[in-house]
């Protein structure tokens, strides 16, 4: 059957388009499409006709950053695990869970760890000078022991309901370490002082002898 309406409309098709958008509309479109414009560049990899993989630059950049960060994180983690020092217990990945269980420990831990690192730095300066300290190894062993018990405590934090006690023990553990390091520092300082006075006396003796 003949559709005369359709014929009529297609005959006058152009006359039906009577509306026009406001000229300002382009500005809006322009502004909104401006932001994701950088995405326009596309990297595409084709594997024959069937499978093709395409990703824009922004996506690739984000992906590359993620990979890079993951790599750095993993290297850091491995390095920390290899050194048996006091700082090894700071696995940043666990931080989030801990903030839920015991939020105060995160700050406390960060504070003490920075103190410990500082003191260790100071100590290492002394170590370079030979001061004839036989107990050095013993202290390292003690610190390692404290470190491992700290790790045990931290693990318990996830499973035990009584977090307060454990947090207290953890803080105590950190304080003991500081105490140990402090003592060592004091010993080293006094040894150095003694050495200095002995040297001074020796010099004085020499000068008086002449």
């Amino acid at each position: 059957m003949k559709d005369r309406l359709k014929d009529f409309v297609s005959e006058h098709r152009d006359e039906f388009d009577v509306f026009e958008p406001r000229p300002e509309l382009w500005q809006q479109i322009c502004q909104e499409s401006q932001a994701p414009r950088k995405e326009a560049k596309v990297i595409s990899i084709k594997f024959g006709e069937r499978a093709s993989f395409s990703a824009d630059f922004l996506f690739m950049r984000v992906a590359a950053t993620v990979v890079l960060l993951l790599g750095c994180g993993l290297t850091l983690l491995l390095m920390k695990q290899n050194t048996p020092g006091a700082g090894a217990m700071l696995a940043a990945t666990e931080q989030k869970v801990i903030t839920n269980i015991a939020p105060e420990i995160v700050e406390v831990e960060a504070y003490y760890v920075s103190q410990i690192e500082e003191m260790k730095g100071e100590l290492s300066e002394y170590d370079k000078k030979v001061l004839g300290l036989g107990e050095q190894k013993e202290i390292d062993r003690e610190l390692a022991r404290l470190d491992s018990s700290y790790l045990v405590l931290k693990k318990q934090l996830y499973t035990t309901p009584n977090t307060e006690e454990i947090v207290e023990a953890m803080v105590q553990n950190l304080q003991i370490r500081i105490e140990v390091l402090n003592r060592q520092l004091e010993v080293l300082q006094s040894i150095k002082k003694m050495e200095r006075t002995i040297n001074a006396e020796l010099k004085e003796n020499e000068t008086t002898n002449i």
Partner: peptide
């Protein structure tokens, strides 16, 4: 834009 605007209208 004009043709598409009329479609949309």
């Amino acid at each position: 834009s004009k043709a598409m605007f009329n479609v949309s209208m």
